[in-house]
Nucleic acid binder design. Sequence first.
DNA 1: AATGAATGAGCCTTCATTCAT
DNA 2: GATGAATGAAGGCTCATTCAT
Lengths: 231, 231, 231, 231
Amino acid sequence: MPRKKPLPTKERIIDVAGDIFGKNGFKAATIRQIATAAQANLAAVNYHFRDKEGLYRAVLEDTFSKGFHRFPYRKNPEESNAPDQQLHSFIRAMFHRFLNNEGWGGISGRGKLIAREFFEPTPAFEPIVDTYIKPHKEILVSIISDLSRGKAGMDKILPCAISIIGQCVYYTFAAPVIQRIAKEFLPTQENIDLLADHVFWFSLGGIQQINTRPVDKKTPIVLNTLQEKHP
Amino acid sequence: MPRKKPLPTKERIIDVAGDIFGKNGFKAATIRQIATAAQANLAAVNYHFRDKEGLYRAVLEDTFSKGFHRFPYRKNPEESNAPDQQLHSFIRAMFHRFLNNEGWGGISGRGKLIAREFFEPTPAFEPIVDTYIKPHKEILVSIISDLSRGKAGMDKILPCAISIIGQCVYYTFAAPVIQRIAKEFLPTQENIDLLADHVFWFSLGGIQQINTRPVDKKTPIVLNTLQEKHP
Amino acid sequence: MPRKKPLPTKERIIDVAGDIFGKNGFKAATIRQIATAAQANLAAVNYHFRDKEGLYRAVLEDTFSKGFHRFPYRKNPEESNAPDQQLHSFIRAMFHRFLNNEGWGGISGRGKLIAREFFEPTPAFEPIVDTYIKPHKEILVSIISDLSRGKAGMDKILPCAISIIGQCVYYTFAAPVIQRIAKEFLPTQENIDLLADHVFWFSLGGIQQINTRPVDKKTPIVLNTLQEKHP
Amino acid sequence: MPRKKPLPTKERIIDVAGDIFGKNGFKAATIRQIATAAQANLAAVNYHFRDKEGLYRAVLEDTFSKGFHRFPYRKNPEESNAPDQQLHSFIRAMFHRFLNNEGWGGISGRGKLIAREFFEPTPAFEPIVDTYIKPHKEILVSIISDLSRGKAGMDKILPCAISIIGQCVYYTFAAPVIQRIAKEFLPTQENIDLLADHVFWFSLGGIQQINTRPVDKKTPIVLNTLQEKHP
DNA sequence: AATGAATGAGCCTTCATTCAT
DNA sequence: GATGAATGAAGGCTCATTCAT
């Protein structure tokens, strides 16, 4: 049964804009490029989204919305709630959200869009933080807390959370560097689960270490290599 | 005592270009902006560097050169060579390279320059990889190998290296996100060493976990939350 | 008693278009602006008036039609036909037509529409000239002729007519300048009759002077300030 | 002796921009049109004047500056200071400033530029008012005062000044209307002095009338033609 | 070594208009 | 009678680059 009508112009534009904004960044991407790729008129962008920025906002929202909708993390009530299992699920879902490219570009498309927002957010990112990022973080925090049997304070939990997310993000978004120095660990559809496993175990060890390290024991290491050299 | 003479035009341009390319990216940064900030003529950039891209190359080389020169990692012959100490040194040096901003902008200047190259490298990055990144990676690899008493293969060492670098990079470059969700762990001059400590301990635990994990034990966890939803 | 129904779309558009064309001129006014202000669909203008220009034509006709209908000049049969009285009436009616803003914007609405047509007429103005301007001029000519007891030729009458109309027009349309250099004589609802009086007396004196000046007496004044300076 | 080099780009642009802004108004004029006519590159406008608006400002200043410089009004010390002579000079200079088109367009060029500013001033006009218009007005005020032997107050002088300027302005700028209803009085190089003479005599009569009219005598005329008709 | 003037390419946006419904 | 979607044309502006001096 054939598809009756192609996607309407508006959605077609969002679709290709995701890739193009992702690959080139907001500034370098041109709406000409986008309109052409979407087989739409140049002015259609302004008609539907008012602005290049309006389009960008729509793309960003669409990206997160679809990403979290298709790869949600939710405690599975039918299975064991063991926190390590939850952590594993969480990490794996994150990898899949970043890398899976069914229809929308993965690492070389909308993924980079997200990366960019992470380290130089545009105004369009603000609502995304509230709607998607913060709740997501809370889940991770509660998992780590569980893993620590409730004994760890935020001073330990939050850095762990950052370490975990950092690995996921780096694995997926620093692909160009990884390719150059350790190309066998480039995230691909095939090894994505292996990588997620690695991050899971590595982080599990990390969390345990952080929780067992004696609080008062100051690092005794002398770091005289850090004596800054003066020019 | 002679009057310290101002930097010559060429260096002045490199200097401000570092910040501006960093803050805005290659495309969005404009030669006018740079020339104005450097109090140089608009045509001076093309005169000295032939190209906008030529300037960018110069800036990138300058950034890495100065970064590694001022915060080198070198085994300290006067102290214990214990590999955990070395790892600590390595991580700390990395943090300082990224964040220290004496003269060149730290997180909000040349730092972002590096981040960008990590996940969308320009042609100018290629020589940097060979000159700086690869040797740097080798050091880390050898430290991790030592930590594993030589028993770990590259299949374990490399992912660990990536996990470690990922944390460092994320901590420093995802600052905008961290500020929004865990602002007390924003890297600053004051807590930079604490953060480095955290990453050190977390990674130490991670490496140990990876090394002790039974190779054949497949993750038994059922991840049915990953059943992708179809639209 | 039935609810007064709102003006139909077509008239609503003409209404607001008068103001908008007046304030901004034909080119600068946009159909979007007009349609929005009239709470009509963007395409409605083209639907009802075919063209932006078609709408403009309709607006212009409407403006003059309403203006002359509401403030006609007609010899009043019940009163003295003294030509000075007629001149006074004529001038006063003109002021009122230009300035009165019951419903259609006065000086800052359709008034400026007329001003613009005076010094850069559009094709739409041509029929207006025949229908409204020329008959209006004839009335003034006949009044001036009467004031001269029929002794003045067109060579004297027409310039006087222009002088009179010029004053009225200038008073009303050069308001922005008047406000800056003599703001107490800005035409307002309150002093409009005083201004009309002034123009009346000034013009009366002017006409008399023109009629008494010896025809052959050439101005004897030496105007050496007019020796043009060369750059 | 041949002219060595053609006008530099910047001046060429100002030159043609005067005509084009005049003919079409700020909005409708395009910098493409201007650049083409000036045989300059499109970007030259932005280079030299930053903005379309910057160019407009330059044109306006240039217009007034040249106008007043070439046709100054200055009491001629060598001749009689009779105020009526002064008035004549003043009026004639004004006509020439508006109409003379040696090199810069007269009635159909920069003249309309001025007219437009009179009844819908742009921000660029503000400094012009202070620098040129106000001093110019003061001269006229003092002439009228002299004509009244110092007995007239501002309440009489200012309206007279407006009446005089109004005639001059209207004569020159309402040319399109004049052509349609009294084409023999279209201002041209040939009859410009005759028209100035007319305005002079008409205004002289007007001023005298205003000064002799009994202050308390209210106009007795019944203006029942002004009973507004209701729609 | 350095600069002011000028240029050509390209980008975002706006606008009047049309078309299918 | 009226509308939402879409379009082609054109406009202002920015930018990297070049060239004569």
